[in-house]
Structures are given as structure tokens and as C-alpha cells.
Design a protein around this nucleic acid. Structure first.
Lengths: 204, 204, 204, 204
DNA sequence: TATGAATGAGAGTTCATTCAT
DNA sequence: GATGAATGAACTCTCATTCAT
């Protein structure tokens, strides 16, 4: 009934983080101002600082928040797939920027690269990044182990293979989101699956 | 008030680019001020703008310049090694951050990551990055082809293997320079060489 | 660090324009810095840019604003005078710099000259100047027509006479505010009235 | 024979003043940089300061120099005309900006307006301006007196009439060079000649 | 004379942050 | 909770001026 109802702290927090992630994706971390985030969130710049103590805090939280969201979405989706091989394929599908037309090219990876650069000098960010990355590799390793247990994959050190695949995807994704003329999403996808097939001994 | 002996334009240009690269490595692109570069170069801030029309121009040039320098140094060194396998090993040695104690950990890779982030929104940087990256993959592919011609390596698409190795190194290096507790320089080195050995059919 | 009680946007706007006009009058357009205006207005330099997007914008607006104020003050005063001849005399009184001891010599005319110079290259200023100038000549022409209707003045093209008188005052005022030793305020006043009397056929 | 021959101090001085006048006319005093003048003169910025002690000095001298040149050119031309009435007409012809198609519209007047603004706060410029202006009015008065002596003109205070005409031309010229839609060069010319005819009792 | 590298003193502008309302 | 006026600390960039060559 009331025209303007104050939102719960929790809602506002998320709204602002969402807005921040969107702005960072669009303009890059360095070009993101508090007022941009405020505008995107439809609130005043002052309110941003009311919820987050400083710009730095806001941006850090936004970066990990967005990555977290991505991870959760992907996990939820993959958990529903019965075959490990298909899980792996879906994971690659979703990780190759621009491979699935329904997802933007930049979105997750651009943020992820900002995380890297920031983590170089921000210890908290570095810590967060390590956690996120290990969780990511862990979930790949889990798929590998599940596939091995199910007989879908051959033997091999799951953690080593996970590190290989995760790193390869990182390295290739960089070039894909840069629109490198020689590294198309399709080529990235093919190479990732080829390496996975070779390492895990399955047919493509 | 007091003028100092002028240097040749060419020298100054390089001096300033060197200084800029050093500052960017140390503080990060976002935290690099013109006055930092000036101080590092031992000149006045005004002079920086005298040689480079704007801060943006300076930083862009510094990034590609530094990468170029790295590539040339590595090429020169590798060219002197007779065996392709040893060339590859040396290339990995030099690429793994912190693997050789005589090289700093950050240096090249930190700059390289700044290039990525910047290239996302700066078309000129994007163009430069693509050129640098292709040259890099090319030189790996050349080693592969030479090794195949010499019978050191087994068959395989040299360009594909080069892309695989280059991307893998990119992805792993990120984690290594982040001091990821699970990805040491040694582990990165081992994994790169293992993949190379497997793909190229040579003994470690 | 310490914030001061905010004023209404409208008030602040006028305060700043007033301050700017005062500073321009005192120091000249070329020597007017944002910080001068800020100091004069008793606020921080940042606030000036908060209200006016740029220094240029501020100065342009200040110039037309001040001229506008002058015109309104003069109009209000003249409207109260019943006789056209006396209206004309009062208009000349107020226009001759330094003629009335209670008015500063520079004030309006110095600003007006800055408008001229700026209008030479600033299209917006040129447009504003034309409007202000035509309004000014119009109000002289109106006095002339009223006097003719009332039989105080003889016949003649009111617009032509207005242009003559306005231009003559412009040209003379320049020399008066320059303190030209041969063109005193009194001489300017006498000459203007003499020309008016001759053109309009009234006794001084 | 020698490729580059140093110019005489006198020549260089004039070249630089000419260049400065041209730049000021084009860009306005406020936007004139030493390097602009240097470029226009085809020399290095350093040399400008070698001939003129400071930017201020240079600009002041350029302004009076250009005005001086204009006055001398006009005087020379008028002296050759036998009839005072025709002398006066020619003087008006040359003074109305844009009236004679072979002369630029801005040129002299734009510089002259810069003189006014600068003279407000620069005592030396003020002194120079007064001299130039009195010389100008004097030469008009001389024509008037010559015409009266020759019986071309009726009686009247020559100095007063000169002041009237000079001021009227100043005031009208401002509007003409501003491209005021209601004050064309022709209208200015007509009005000046009409006032002259009325004051001096001659037929147009 | 002439050049142009080099300096340094600003100036405008941006923007995170504060705080009265 | 929410706003937005206000501050002030940077920072980039400009430009007159100097001076070794």
C-alpha cells in the first residue's frame, strides 16, 4: 500500500551487488564509479556507502558474489545430469564464452579476469579467489571421480586432470573473449573435449 | 627552474617505457600515476606528457613494449639451443613464474594480465594483444615443427598443440602468480612438460 | 571533512552566479579561476562544478545573468518615470559609467565587454548577446515611441534613433571606463543628451 | 648562398608581431599560446621568448602594432583623396567591417576589442589605447576641419563631431562583427553617413 | 641566433566519502 | 533507511619559461 517501502537489508545488499556486477561487466572495474552502480541499482550514491563501507569493499564483494552465483547456477544444472561424460560436456558448454547463444560472451569471464588482476595486490581478494578456484577444480575432479567409479572414464589422477582441464579452459577462454581470430568458441570447445577424452579415455 | 642535459628522443622514450613497465608491474595498472612513472624515470611529470600525448597512450605502449622485450629476450635465448625438446623445456622454464630463482615471479605475467583486462575495452590494445599472442603461439608451433622434422617429436597438428600448450601455460600461470597453495611453480612445470610429452610423444 | 547546511539548489545557483559576476568584474574573464569564484561564494571549488558542469558553462551563464539583472533593475526603475524625456535622461544617467556616484564605474560595462569578446567565438554567447542587445535597443525605441505619442518628441524612425543612441553609448562608454582623459562621464552624458535632443527635437 | 641565414632582429620582430596578430585575430587573445605564434611564424617557441621577454609583452606589442599598421594604411590612403567629404566617406568605408568585400570582417575590430578588454587591467595597454584612440579621433577631426575650411562642411566643434562619429562607429561595429541580424554593414554605413551629413551639413 | 628538451607551477575536473535533513 | 548537497584530495594535462647545445 505504501508508495515507497524500505527494502530489507538483505534484499538491498543483493540488489546492489547485482548492480555492481553488471556495471563492472559493462565498463570494467577501473571505470566503475559508485554513482554508476547507484544509477544501475536505482538508488542514490549515498545509499551504496550506507550498505558497503567503501567502494573497495563493494567491488570486492561484487566480484566474489557474481562468481558465486555463476558457480551455483552451474552446479545446480550439472547435478541433474546422470552421466559423468555428459556432465563434463555440459560444464564445457557453459564455460566456453559465446558457445551457447543464450549466454553473453563476456559476462562471467570478464569479471573473473578482474578478480585475477585485483587479487595480485589485494590479499582478501587473493584469498577469495583461491577458494573459488579450488571449489571449481574440486567440482571438476568430482565429476572425474564419479565417471571413473561408474566406469565411464579410465584411470588417472582426478585432481591433476581437473587442474589440467580448468587451466586449459582459463587459458583458452581468455583468447575467446578477446575475439582472437584464430580461437573461436568452437575451436576452444573441441580442444577442451579432445584433451578430456584423451586424458580420461572416452570416445567423443 | 634548472634544466638537465637533454637526452636523445629515442633514449628517453625507452627509458620512460621501461619506467612505466616497472611501475605497472609493481603497483598495477589502475594504481599507476604519471607522477609515479616520472619519479621512477627520474624526470618531471611534465616530460612524460611531452613524450606521450596522454596517460592512456603511455600505458598502452608500455604494456606492449614490455611484452615485446620479454619475447625478444626469450627468442634470442631459445634460438641458441640445438634440440627442440630442450628448447621446449627452456621455454617452459622461463614461462613458469618463479621457477627459475633468478627471475621475479610477477614481472611478465602481471603485465600480461593487465593487457588482457585492458584489451577487453580498448580496441588498439586488443589488436596488439592478438598480434603478440599469435606470435607467441607461432614460436611454440615452430619448435614443435622443428622437433617433428628432426624426429624428436611424434606427429600431430603443430598449431593445435601450440595452442594447447600456450593456453595451458596461461591458465596455470595465473594460479601460480596468485600463490595458489595447490599450484606451485614445480607442479605447473611438471604438468606442462607432461602434457607436452604426451602430445608430442617424447620421454621426459 | 565537515559538511555545511545545504541550501536550496536555486539559491546556490544564484549565489554562485553572483559570485562569478563579481569576480569577473574584478579580475576579468581571463583571470577568473573556479577557485576564485568558490572563495567569493564561500564554498568549495568542487561545489561550483557540482552546479555548473564546467568552467565555461559557469562563466557564460554568469555573463548573461549579470546583464540580465542590470537590465531588469533599470527597466523597473524607468517604468516608474512618467515623462519619456525623463525616462531617457534616467537611462543615460544609469548608462554613463561613473556618472552617478552611487554606482561603480566598471561593473556592468566591463562585463558587457567580456561578452563581446567571448561572443566572437562562442556561438551560444553570440546568440545570447544578440538577444540582450536587441532587448536593450527595443526598450530605448519604446521610450522614443512613447514620447512621440505623447508629443514630447518629434517624428523620426524610432528604431533607427534607438540604434543610434545605443551604439553611441556603447562607443562612448568604452572610452569612459578606460578613463580616457578626454572623455569624462560628463562629456559622454552631454553628448548623448545632445544627440538625443537633436534627433528627437526636444529642449535639453 | 647559405641555406639558413639569420634574419635581422628588426625583420624577425615584425614577422613575429605579424604572426601574433594573425593568431590573435583567429583564435582570440585568451586562446593564443606562444607555440601557436611560433608555428604561425615558422620558428620555435623558444625564439619567441628570445625576442620578447614574456608572453604578455609579446601580446601587448602585437595588439598595438596591428592597430598601428591599420592606422597607417588608412592614413596613407586617405591623404591621397582631395575632397574632405570623400575622405570621410572612404574612412567610413574602411571602418565598416565587411563593407568592402576585399577586407575581412573581423580583422581589425576583433583585435581592437581585445585591446579594450586588456586595457581595463593593464596600465600600459590602457596608455597605448588612449594614444591610439586619440590619434584616430584626431584624424577624423582633421578631416572635419579641412572640410570646414574648404567650405564642404558647415560649422561645428570638430572635436565633438569627431568624438561622436568615432564612438558611433565603435558602437555599431561591435554589432556588425557579431553578425547581429538587425545591424548589417550597409545599415551601419548608412547611419554613420547620415549622422555625419546632419552634423556637418552636407548632402549625401 | 635558433632549437627543443625539460621543468614546474597551476588549473580544471573527478569522485569517494560525509552528513544534515 | 534514504537522499543529495558539500567537501577535499588527488590526478591529468597545459603551457610559459629556461637553458644546454
Amino acid at each position: 500500500m505504501s508508495a515507497v517501502r524500505p527494502k530489507s537489508t538483505r534484499d538491498r545488499n543483493q540488489e546492489i551487488l547485482d548492480a555492481a556486477a553488471r556495471v563492472i561487466t559493462e565498463r570494467g572495474l577501473a571505470e566503475t564509479r559508485i554513482s554508476d552502480v547507484a544509477e544501475q541499482a536505482g538508488v542514490s550514491p549515498g545509499l551504496i556507502l550506507y550498505y558497503f563501507d567503501s567502494k573497495d569493499r563493494l567491488l570486492s564483494e561484487a566480484l566474489t558474489y557474481a562468481n558465486d552465483q555463476f558457480f551455483l547456477r552451474m552446479s545446480r544444472e550439472i547435478r541433474r545430469i546422470p552421466s559423468a561424460k555428459e556432465q563434463l560436456r555440459r560444464l564445457v558448454d557453459l564455460s566456453v564464452p559465446g558457445y551457447l547463444p543464450e549466454f553473453g560472451k563476456l559476462d562471467e569471464w570478464a569479471l573473473w579476469m578482474e578478480v585475477w588482476v585485483r587479487a595480485l595486490r589485494d590479499p582478501q581478494m587473493a584469498k577469495d579467489r583461491e577458494i573459488l578456484d579450488q571449489r571449481w577444480r574440486q567440482s571438476i575432479a568430482d565429476i572425474v571421480r564419479a565417471g571413473q567409479a561408474a566406469g565411464e572414464f579410465g584411470p588417472g589422477d582426478a585432481d591433476e586432470i581437473a587442474l589440467l582441464l580448468a587451466s586449459l579452459m582459463d587459458g583458452l577462454a581468455i583468447q575467446v573473449i578477446m575475439n582472437d581470430s584464430q580461437v573461436s568458441p568452437e575451436r576452444m570447445h573441441r580442444l577442451c573435449m579432445a584433451v578430456a577424452a584423451k586424458e580420461l579415455g572416452f570416445e567423443l
